[in-house]
């Protein structure tokens, strides 16, 4: 399991290649990447705050659960904080499993839990001002399916 919480950008392609390299136990690798979305065309940047100390531990707990439930060969989570421009990669997850169904399901589980249980908070800064992104009820509901 690899968990990284960092301010600096990461190279999605390089991370995927590194994660998949040299595996003999996994027939499937699934990745998800989240980018900064500009809904209004007016977004200057996103500011992501996190809880140093708790963040890595919380993500490791979520990833451990994914590895256990879907018998993953490995899992990778990278999540950024700080100031991020529209279109910039925020985070990525990768899962490796013998078969694809487990790799897909585990990646979805990771994303659902990272959204509502990893201590990050997003603030949108536009020309009109700044506003904290509010958690959606459907994000909380998404946890029920697991």
């Amino acid at each position: 399991m690899q968990v990284r919480v960092q301010e600096e950008p990461f190279d999605m392609g390089g991370e995927l290649a590194g994660f998949a390299h040299g595996r003999r136990d996994a027939g499937a690798v699934v990745t998800f990447s989240g980018l900064v979305r500009d809904d209004t065309g007016d977004l200057s940047h996103l500011e992501i705050e996190h809880y140093p100390g708790m963040t890595t531990t919380a993500i490791e707990g979520i990833a451990s659960e994914a590895i256990r439930r879907w018998s993953l060969s490995d899992a990778l989570v990278i999540h950024r904080y700080g100031r991020l421009a529209p279109g910039a990669p925020i985070m990525m997850v990768a899962t490796a499993a013998p078969h694809r169904a487990d790799a897909f399901a585990a990646a979805e589980f990771l994303m659902d839990y990272l959204k509502s249980r990893a201590p990050f908070w997003k603030k949108e800064v536009t020309s009109a001002g700044e506003a904290w992104v509010e958690a959606k009820a459907e994000d909380e509901d998404a946890l029920d399916r697991w």
Binding site: H79, M91, L114, K115, A118, F120, W121, W132, E134, A135
Partner: peptide, 10 residues
């Protein structure tokens, strides 16, 4: 002890 709004990761 930490207080915060619902998290918005991912």
């Amino acid at each position: 002890v930490a207080f915060f709004p619902p998290m918005t990761g991912g």
